[in-house]
Design a binder for these strands. Structure first.
Length: 212
DNA sequence: ACATTAAGTGATT
DNA sequence: AATCACTTAATGT
């Protein structure tokens, strides 16, 4: 675990903090598709993401879902942070988008560290900030962009976190993430294909104009 | 060969 | 942009 920790967080934390993390943290691995956090769960652990990507989903009363953003290496979940502090229930769910490795930290430690290590505090604030920005970005996207642009962005983000321009997913999967219908996704994908931005196959989409 | 699931399309709201 | 209804195509058993 030491090595993984160094790679993902070494540049951020001082030695003593890294050692503490190493002694109280538990290295956990999950497979693609596993549910890491479900709605209304109370959270006892803070995850520090080492490898892989986690998709954060929001759900309404009817059970309709919407993908908000991804967590990647070096990230933590700010929902966990404020859930833990108030010991509230989770407002979101987290699903392993790829196979995932993270270090799990008990809540009390994270509170101790807030006072003990300024780098930890900085990390927590920074994390809040970047999560907030990602959320704003998502909102802008939802509010101001047409489906067509949302879809394009969705595919680029997906290609980024999957580290591949060849995506294995169905139109229905996309529709679920974007909270729209499969028919709409199919039509828009078709038009993106006609623009030469992507190439379609069964359960497969190739992103051609990848520029990230 | 048949059933199931994914994708494409016109028409309607 | 959503929904319906229907078709076509690919895949699994």
């Amino acid at each position: 675990m030491k090595q993984e920790l160094e790679e993902a967080f070494g540049f951020m934390f001082e030695k003593e903090l890294l050692e503490e993390i190493e002694s109280v943290g538990v290295l956990r691995k999950y497979k693609q598709g596993d549910i890491l956090i479900d709605y209304n769960e109370t959270l006892q652990q803070i995850p520090l993401l080492i490898d892989g990507a986690v998709k954060i989903m929001r759900q309404d009363e009817k059970g309709d879902e919407l993908a908000l953003y991804y967590l990647e290496r070096g990230d933590t979940c700010s929902m966990t942070l404020n859930c833990c502090l108030g010991s509230k229930k989770s407002e979101i769910s987290a699903v392993a988008e790829t196979d995932v490795i993270f270090i799990s930290i008990p809540v009390q430690k994270m509170q101790d560290w807030m006072q003990k290590y300024q780098t930890w505090m900085a990390f927590v604030f920074e994390s809040y900030n970047s999560r907030f920005n990602e959320l704003l970005e998502s909102i802008d996207n939802l509010a101001f962009n047409k489906m067509h642009e949302r879809l394009h962005k969705y595919l680029e983000d997906k290609a980024l976190v999957m580290k591949s321009t060849s995506l294995n997913l169905s139109h229905q999967d996309i529709a679920n993430d974007m909270h729209t219908s499969r028919v709409v996704v199919s039509r828009l994908l078709k038009s993106l294909e006609n623009e030469g931005l992507i190439k379609l196959g069964r359960n497969k989409i190739e992103v051609l104009d990848f520029d990230a």
